[in-house]
Design a protein around this nucleic acid. Sequence first.
DNA 1: GTTGAGCGTT
Length: 252
Amino acid sequence: MSHFGRSGPPDIADTYSLLVLNISFRTSADDLFPLFDKYGKVVDIFIPRDRRTGESRGFAFVRYKYQDEAQKAVDKLDGRVVDGREIAVQFAKYGPNAERIQKGRIIEKVPRGRGRSRSRSPRRRYRDDHYRDRDYRRRSRSRSLDRYERDRYYERERDYRYKSRSYSRSPDYDRGRGRRRYDDELKSRSQSFDSASPPQRSLSPRKSLSPRRTSSSGNESPKRRSSRCSITPQSKSPRNRANDSRSPSPDH
DNA sequence: GTTGAGCGTT
């Protein structure tokens, strides 16, 4: 039944593509299929997903075999609340490869030059920056693609749609982040030992300062804080400085 | 845990 896209785009000839916007990020193709299939023969449903996270991007493509049925679906399902969100259904304006399209129907095989140069929305979200900051693209993408091409969006057929998402994604996050941070810390620390001028780390003793301040706000003497801030790394050896910043009592 | 305009793949 819902084996859309098992081997890439099926027969996209003489089909009419609808763009379904504003669907929930948890709405899957199998959620949309019964809705749209009521109004005609649905030959394919495709939900673009993020290649890295595998999460839905919030819209879908539904291809009908006949235009009148597609039009009926637009008429009936546009504005329908699905999974708590009011979806928008309209005919697709672009083909999968930017083919010329008309009323959702592809009327030209190859676009002679337009390619994918159509202006795609430069949407940048907090996640994108987050991922880019971690620079995990190369390592985890191969694994992500592996999983992606294995299951695509058929996880739901196994009756654990939500659980599968959480358990397949959580370890990835934790492993990647944990490993990265640990490695980073080790690297910075070894650099501090190796290098003779590591001023960045000595300038942030807030880690040990913040928790104490909350318990005793205003009780701390400015003299102590000033002495902590005026630590000159050059006058002390790196080992002593590191030890000093970690120890809460510099006076000994 | 986190988002919300938009046009797509073994």
